[in-house]
Amino acid sequence: MKLIKSLTILSLTAVLISSCGEAKKEEVVEEAVTVEEPVEVVETPNIVGVASANADFSTLVAAVGAAELVETLSGEGPFTVFAPTNAAFEKLPAGTVETLLKPESKDKLTAVLTYHVVSGKFEAAQVIEAINANNGKFEVATVQGGKITLSLENGNVVLTDANGGKATVAVADVAASNGVIHAIDTVVMPK
């Protein structure tokens, strides 16, 4: 009888120990399972996308569309765009923008817009460094083929066009996936 009691106690102990071990295994498995949230990767839009998302560039975006330059400025680049704001376009003589947006003015509009574009990505620090390294003035070739002279006035980068007109960089280093945009306060004009 003692033997039966001993075997019964031993079997009960074995059952208890094995069931406790299984519970611990289940807990470990439950703790090891984690669910990760998906990470959203946000890509910086290209120059046209950045300009389109900013209400201050709506006139420029309309002009880029009328000149059929969307595909070009959406290309690989890199480009530096001295982008006139809506207020810059408003400084032009009355009717100028409307005339430039007409289909028969496409060549002139294209020339004006590409005069604001430089091949390569030049952030403000590089522009200022180039100006300082060249006795206060640095001339850049535009995609249009003309030249713009960059200088500093009161700590601001100033563009001087082929006709002597000036524009000041109001906002620098607006990042785009294919270059950089510097917002300017006046439209510069080629010869």
Rank of each mutant, 00 (worst) to 15 (best):
K2N: 13
S11L: 15
S11T: 15
C20Y: 11
G21E: 11
E22L: 13
K24Q: 12
K24N: 03
E27F: 11
V33D: 10
E36Q: 08
E36H: 06
E40S: 08
E43G: 02
T44K: 11
T44P: 06
V48F: 03
V48A: 00
A53V: 04
N54I: 08
A55S: 14
D56W: 06
V70P: 07
E71I: 01
E76M: 05
E76W: 03
G77Q: 02
P78S: 07
T85H: 04
A88T: 08
E90F: 01
L92A: 12
A94K: 12
A94F: 09
V97N: 00
E98I: 04
K102T: 11
Y115C: 05
S119Q: 14
G120F: 11
K121V: 01
V127D: 00
N132V: 13
F138W: 15
F138N: 14
E139S: 15
V140A: 13
V143G: 02
G145M: 10
G146C: 06
G146M: 08
T149S: 11
G155N: 04
L159M: 13
T160W: 07
T160V: 12
T168V: 14
V169K: 04
S177P: 07
G179Y: 06
V180Q: 05
I184W: 05
V187T: 09
V188H: 07
P190W: 03
